[in-house]
Design a protein around this nucleic acid. Structure first.
Lengths: 335, 335
DNA sequence: CTGTTAGCGCATTCAT
DNA sequence: ATGAATGCGCTAACAG
C-alpha cells in the first residue's frame, strides 16, 4: 500500500495526500479529514525509505559507545533514547567495544547510514591524535556531540564535568578530616580519568602532602579479581591508605570489598570516595560517599544543544558541569 | 555524489557500478578494480535510502526493551548489538519504559521504520491479553523474537529459561541443607517472575513444608528503600527466614544488605540465593550464590534463529534453556 | 560480461 | 486548494 492507493480511494491526487501526511496548511479541512480517515481505515504508514530518499534524512541519531553493559554508558543511553524519541528521533546504536582503534570503522558505519548526528558517549575515543582528526573530519558532514569528552572543532559540541576540581575537592575533604595516607584508584587513560588523576595530584601537592603519603594506582583490567590483586600488591609494597578516592563507583565498591576481606573497618579505619553516584553506591553496605557526576544534566543539555543545531541556531560548543560530593557512609572524619 | 558520477568517471554504466557495489560475480576483474579505485578515490558511499527503497530493507533490527539502564537488559542489548553487527545488521533501539500499555505505540514506531525484525527483551510485555494479540498481529508483517518470554504464534520465536525448575532446585537445595523457613522475594508479575514463583511454591509443596514456614513477598517498587521496608514489615509480622530465594540479584543483594543492617550473619543464620549471575553477585560481600540464567546463550541462540529465518529456513519456534545454580558464599548447609 | 530501462514511494515545484 | 509531472539514487530484469 502506498500513497497512490490512498489517493485513489480518496479521489484526490498524491500531492494532496502528501500534504495531509506532512500537515501542510494548504489543504481544506474537509479533504484533510477524508484523507485522514482513509489512511486510518487502511492502516497506512508512509514508507520511510522513499521519504528519506527525497529529504535525505530519516530522523535518526547514531549513538556511539563502548559497551552498553557498562552502567554509566547504560544510563546515558537510557536518557538519550528517551529524550531523542520525545523529540521525534530514533536512536541507532553502535557499540565499538573498548578498543578505540576501530573508531573509523564505526564512524563510517554511522555516516553511511545517513544518521543526522552522532553522539559519542565516553571520552576514551578522543585520546589518540588520529582519532581527533577523524572526528574533526567526520564533523564536516554531520554534527558530533561528545559526552564527557573535550575536542575543539567546527560542528563538534562537547559537554563534560569539571572532574579535576571535583577530585581535588575530594582530596581536600579527606585531608581536612585527618586522613593522611591517600590513594587514587583509576581504571583507564581516558580524558576524564586523566582529569581526575590530575586533580588528585594537584590537590595533594597543594596540601604539601609528602610524596610517600599519596599514590595513584591504575587498574586497567576492569575485573574484581584483578583489582583485588593490584590492591594487595600495592598495600604490601607501599602503604595501607586511610583514604581512597576512586575514579568510579565500581572501583570504590571493589576497594570496599577488599577492605572487608582484610578486616579493615570502613569508614573507621578507611574512608572511600567513589564517583558517579551510580546505583552501586546505594547498593553497597556501607553506602558509598561519591561524586555526583550529574549524568542526566549532561545528557539533557546535550540533547538541547542538538535540537538547537538542527533548528539552525549556533549554540555554545563547550559546556562544563560542576559536580558535587554526596556524603554517605564510607567517609568519616578522623579528627 | 551518486552512482552516475562513478559510472561516468569509470566509463561504465550504472548497472556495472551497482554490480561492483554488491559484489556480483558477473563483473570482470579489470572493471571491478577500476570501479573500486574510483569509488575509493572519491570516497563514495551508496545512498542507503535509495537502496532501501528498492529492496525494502535497510538491514536493521528493532530492539524493544523496557530500559537499558537495567543491568539485565543492558547485558542483553550489548550481546545483541555485537552479534547483529557482526552479521551486517544495525540495531535500532526503542525503549518503552516499564509501562506495558504503550506496546502498540512502540511496535508501530518500529514497523513504520521498516525494521527487518523485532527483538523484544523481557517478558513483561506479554502478560496482558491485548498485547498478545498485538504481537501476533505484528508478526504478520515481520518476524518477532521474544527473549525470556513465551508466546505461540506464526512468525514468533521465543527463547526462555526453565525458571520454574531452577527455582524449585533452589528450594530443594535450601531445604535439604536444613533451612526451614523460606521466603521468595520477587519484584514483578512478568511471565518469568511467575514461573519462578510457581517453581517456589511447587517446590515447597512437594517437600510438604508447612504453609506457615514459607512465604512469598512481592516488592513492586524496585528501589532499595522500598524493598527494605517490605522486608522489615514482613519479618515483623510473620517470621524471619533462614533461607531467601530472590528473583534477581538486585533483590538478593538488597536482602543481604538488610540482613547486615540487622546483624544477621550470612550465610550462618541466613542463606540467600539470587538469580542471573550478574555483576552484582560478584560485587557483593559475601558473594551471592545465584542461578546462572545463561543470558549469553539465550541471546546468541536467538540471533542464530533470526539468521535462519532470514535465510528462508524454518527453525523451531520455541527454545528453552536449563539454568544451573552457581554456588558462592551466601549459601551454607545448616546441617 | 555489460548496458538500457523501469520501477521503488514520496516530496515538491509549477501550473491551474 | 488541488493536480500533473519530475527527481531523489539505487536494484534488477531484460536485452545484447
Amino acid at each position: 500500500m502506498n500513497i497512490y492507493d490512498i489517493a485513489n480511494r480518496a479521489n484526490v491526487s498524491i500531492a494532496t495526500v502528501s500534504r495531509v501526511i506532512n500537515d501542510s496548511p494548504k489543504v481544506s479541512e474537509k479533504t484533510r479529514k477524508k484523507v485522514h480517515d482513509i489512511m486510518e481505515e487502511l492502516g497506512y504508514t508512509p514508507n520511510v525509505f522513499a521519504r528519506g530518499l527525497g529529504l535525505n534524512t530519516m530522523k535518526t541519531i547514531g549513538i556511539l559507545c563502548s559497551d552498553p553493559s557498562d552502567i554509566y554508558v547504560a544510563r546515558a543511553l537510557s536518557y538519550f533514547e528517551k529524550m531523542l524519541r520525545e523529540n521525534g528521533y530514533d536512536s541507532l546504536l553502535c557499540c565499538s567495544g573498548y578498543d578505540t582503534k576501530n573508531l573509523k570503522k564505526y564512524l563510517n558505519i554511522l555516516v553511511s547510514k545517513s544518521v543526522d548526528a552522532v553522539i559519542m558517549i565516553g571520552s576514551k575515543y578522543i585520546s589518540a591524535k588520529d582519532n581527533k582528526n577523524l572526528i574533526k573530519n567526520t564533523a564536516k558532514s554531520l554534527p558530533i556531540f561528545l559526552i564527557n569528552g573535550f575536542l575543539e572543532g567546527e560542528n563538534i559540541y562537547c559537554s563534560y564535568y569539571d572532574d579535576f576540581n571535583a577530585t581535588k575537592k575530594s582530596v581536600n575533604m579527606l585531608y581536612n578530616t585527618g586522613n593522611r595516607k591517600l590513594l587514587f584508584l583509576y581504571n583507564s587513560t581516558s580524558q576524564s580519568a586523566k582529569r581526575k588523576l590530575d586533580g588528585f595530584i594537584s590537590g595533594c601537592k597543594e596540601l604539601k602532602i609528602k610524596s610517600e603519603n599519596y599514590a595513584t594506582l591504575l587498574c586497567e583490567e576492569n575485573e574484581i579479581e584483578s583489582i583485588n590483586l593490584s590492591l594487595k600488591k600495592f598495600t604490601k609494597e607501599f602503604f595501607f591508605p586511610d583514604g581512597i578516592i576512586a575514579s568510579d563507583d565500581f572501583l570504590a565498591m571493589t576497594a570496599l570489598k577488599f577492605a572487608k576481606q582484610n578486616k579493615i573497618s570502613v569508614p573507621d579505619e578507611l574512608s572511600i570516595i567513589g564517583y558517579d553516584n551510580s546505583i552501586f553506591s546505594k547498593m553497597s553496605y556501607p553506602e558509598l560517599t561519591t561524586v555526583d557526576s550529574r549524568l542526566f544534566d549532561l545528557c539533557s543539555r546535550s540533547v538541547k544543544t542538538l535540537l538547537e543545531v538542527f533548528d539552525g541556531h549556533s549554540p555554545e560548543n563547550i559546556y562544563i558541569l560542576e559536580p558535587s560530593i554526596i556524603e554517605r557512609d564510607t567517609f568519616k572524619s578522623k579528627n
